[in-house]
Amino acid sequence: MSMELRRETFVLQKLRQSTSRFGQPYTVCELHDSAGQVWPAYAWQRFPHPTLWPDGVEVLATVQERSFGTRQVLDVLAMDLAALSDSVQGKTQPQLPFPEWLVSQATQPRLLRELWVQITLMDDPWLCHFNQRILHDPDISLRWVTIPASRTHHHAEASGLLRHSLEAFRLLSKSPQMSLLEWDIARTALLWHDVGKILTYPGGTRRAAEGFLVPHETATAEVLAWHLAWLRQRAPDLVTALKLHWYPPRHGRPLMPGQIFVEACDRVSAALDSRQQAFQEEPAWRQIGTVEGPGPASRFWRLREG
Rank of each mutant, 00 (worst) to 15 (best):
Q24K: 13
L121T: 11
A235G: 01
E182C: 03
W126R: 07
E157R: 11
P148K: 00
Q118W: 13
A209N: 07
P294Q: 12
P296Q: 11
A82D: 10
L238F: 05
G56L: 11
L31S: 07
G203D: 13
L172N: 10
W53C: 01
D86G: 04
H193P: 00
E182D: 15
L171P: 02
A189G: 11
R267F: 10
E65V: 02
D273Q: 10
F22Y: 13
G90M: 13
V57H: 04
R232C: 08
R133W: 13
V76G: 02
L142E: 11
L127N: 08
A82P: 02
P283T: 09
R71T: 10
E58R: 13
I185P: 00
V38Q: 14
A158P: 12
P25H: 07
L115M: 11
P54D: 10
S34V: 14
G306Q: 14
L5H: 10
G23K: 01
R275N: 03
G295Q: 08
G211A: 10
L102V: 08
R6L: 12
T188L: 00
R207A: 12
R207F: 05
W183R: 05
S179Q: 00
E4C: 05
W144I: 04
L272A: 12
I147A: 06
R304K: 09
L272D: 07
T92N: 06
A156D: 13
L52H: 00
P109E: 14
T9V: 12
E4L: 15
I119W: 02
L81Y: 03
R133K: 09
F300V: 04
R250Q: 12
D184F: 04
A78Y: 07
Q118I: 01
E292L: 13
P257I: 06
A208M: 05
E292T: 12
P148H: 01
V103Y: 05
L180T: 10
K14V: 00
P257A: 07
P202N: 06
W44V: 03
